[in-house]
């Protein structure tokens, strides 16, 4: 189930976002070895203080198993700042119709590699469907996602291949980071749904106001 949490409803989802920060610490610090800032066992950076939106996937027990952070590319965001080396010296994209997705991760420890409800593939698809549907509601046409080659492969194999990349992959800590471009379109969402077999509304019931559709 997908929650979209931003600064307007974060009061109701404080526990959820705390779990997101802990999951990100396990993934980006412990497993991938990225040079990220930690606070009390949580990975939190300055972009978390800029009122981003979080797309959060929970399992049937309410545990956070996947997440992504979204920011407008018109304002401060990671590619314009932290991940600038990926862009090979080129200025970053700036478009009111493009959002940036960062800190995309799933809980590899509690998920398996099959295709069921508790698989990496299912949760990846669910987060992507949630993010694209939320973006489309906002009139957004494209997303630029900072991902690693593993996530890139997962996406290519799940009906969600990026249509292009910005700059070139760059070494960040133990792994490589790359900037993938994806259209926020009904065709892409249909393709992810087809692959994953997720045909239901992915959003948590109390989110009807966040996602206007």
């Amino acid at each position: 189930m997908i929650y979209v949490v931003d600064s307007l409803n974060i009061q109701d989802h404080k526990g959820l976002i705390d779990e997101v920060y802990k999951l990100r610490k396990r993934v980006f610090h412990d497993r991938l070895g990225w040079d990220v800032q930690l606070e009390n066992g949580r990975e939190i950076d300055e972009f978390d203080r800029l009122d981003p939106a979080y797309v959060v996937s929970t399992d049937p027990n309410g545990r956070v198993v996947g997440c992504m952070r979204l920011l407008q590319t018109t304002g401060p965001h990671m590619l314009s700042d932290v991940f600038a080396p990926i862009l090979d010296g080129q200025p970053p994209l700036r478009s009111v119709l493009a959002w940036e997705a960062t800190r995309f991760c799933v809980d590899m420890n509690s998920l398996d590699i099959g295709h069921g409800r508790k698989s990496i593939s299912y949760v990846t698809s669910e987060v992507m469907i949630g993010a694209f549907e939320y973006a489309m509601d906002a009139g957004i046409k494209d997303a630029v996602a900072v991902i690693d080659p593993v996530m890139n492969r997962v996406m290519r194999r799940s009906g969600n291949a990026p249509y292009d990349y910005l700059g070139s992959p760059k070494c960040m800590g133990k792994v490589t980071a790359m900037a993938a471009l994806m259209d926020c379109s009904p065709e892409r969402v249909a393709s992810i749904r087809e692959f994953s077999g997720i045909h239901h509304d992915v959003f948590a019931p109390d989110l009807r106001q966040t996602v206007a559709a």
């Binding site: 931003d6 307007l8 973006a135």
Partner: peptide, 10 residues
């Protein structure tokens, strides 16, 4: 404080 357009019902 939102990244998306805010319908005032929100």
């Amino acid at each position: 404080r939102s990244i998306a357009p805010v319908d005032w019902t929100r």
